[in-house]
């Protein structure tokens, strides 16, 4: 996944109706758990104590998505740029649905957009999932 390919000149500026483009960068937060209750992790202590190795794949993707984030933020300052964990489904699914519908997608197309967005790593622009990637980093 290359960050350079995302910063397309066509994405610059606003939509025809004046709204800003909405980009959702989906990626898992390392050491984030749902339903593990209040006993799931130790924040940065978790990483400091050795948890980094467990979540190295998530961390590597976080850093790659971070590159995309920085490139987009620098190239297109007007963007509505959101980074979200795919497990934050209460926010993510409705947000993609709304974005897809606002950009003219029909009900089924919007549902398809929602279904495509919830990957461990994804880049969603105005309700369209442009990039999805595996989370495991394959080493040579």
């Amino acid at each position: 996944m290359s960050s350079a390919s995302v910063v397309d000149p066509a994405v610059r500026g606003r939509l025809a109706d004046g709204r800003v483009h909405q980009v959702i960068l989906v990626r898992e937060q390392d050491a984030q758990h749902s339903g593990s209750g209040c006993c799931g992790r130790l924040g940065e202590r978790h990483t400091a104590l050795g948890g980094a190795a467990d979540f190295s794949h998530s961390r590597a993707r976080m850093e790659q998505v971070g590159e995309i984030y920085r490139a987009l933020a620098a190239a297109v300052p007007d963007l509505e740029l959101t980074v979200v964990d795919p497990r934050n489904l209460v926010w993510l699914y409705p947000a993609v649905w709304r974005a897809a519908r606002a950009n003219g997608a029909g009900v089924f197309a919007a549902l398809r957009a929602v279904a495509r967005a919830g990957a461990p790593v994804a880049v969603v622009v105005d309700g369209n999932t442009l990039i999805r990637a595996a989370c495991l980093i394959r080493r040579p």
């Binding site: 339903g35 209750g37 799931g40 964990d85 934050n88 926010w91 993510l92």
Partner: peptide, 12 residues
């Protein structure tokens, strides 16, 4: 959303 799903679980 991130915060709540992290803190909610079986203990409460």
């Amino acid at each position: 959303g991130h915060h709540f799903t992290s803190v909610a679980g079986a203990a409460p």
